[in-house]
Amino acid sequence: MSLRLEGLSAGYGGIPVLHGVDLEVGEGEVVALLGRNGAGKTTLIKAVMGLVRVYAGQVVYWGQELTPLPSYRRAQLGLGYVPDDRRIFPELTVRENLLIAHRPGPWSLEKVYRMLPRLQEIEHRRGGLLSGGEQQMLTIARTLMTNPKLLLLDEPTEGLAPLIVEEIARLVLELKREGMPVLLAEQNLRFTGRVADRAYVLETGEVRLSGTMDELLHKEEVAALLSL
């Protein structure tokens, strides 16, 4: 088991947003986190990364309890966080954005450029000058440079053109083929259906449904839980 959440409650300023969430991500498994706006997907991912307060419960990563660790320790242990708002360093070049994140492992500048050739073409451009799609590529690539052992992807397709969504789908499938476990927050059901093995559906900070993607896509409740 690469990641296990047990009774996780987390939130902001003393007010919990997540209420007792249990969740698991197996080895080499892509697990989706579904739920409409405000359901708590981002909060859950940030709690795993140590970026929001955990009030109760545990985050267990490869058997290790993470709750007392600061976020940089978690990243050093192999958690790779890709934020929903991208957070490219705007004054650093594409290349610098990648190099500052690098830690030893199979992922290197060469491998990242091979998988996302567009990044090499713009390697000397400042992060702040990239298009939305380029930023999304860069933010994923930057996290891969840390050589993660578990990827946390927060809405990677949000606001992107279909062609770029397609490229991200291919990238995630490639990572899955290499055995990378992924926890993916998404609202795009078609994308999720293609890449994920299982999913949890969140509503107001609680898990309402979970199961394999195939099961869930055939349930009517899922549509109800995801529509506005």
């Binding site: 957070r87 360093f89 004054e91 650093l92 610098e96 994140a101 930057r142």
Partner: peptide, 17 residues
Amino acid sequence: AWVRAATQDREMLEALG
């Protein structure tokens, strides 16, 4: 480069390890 990145987004830099 880390120092420059810290001026731009401390939390993100930390989340990268």
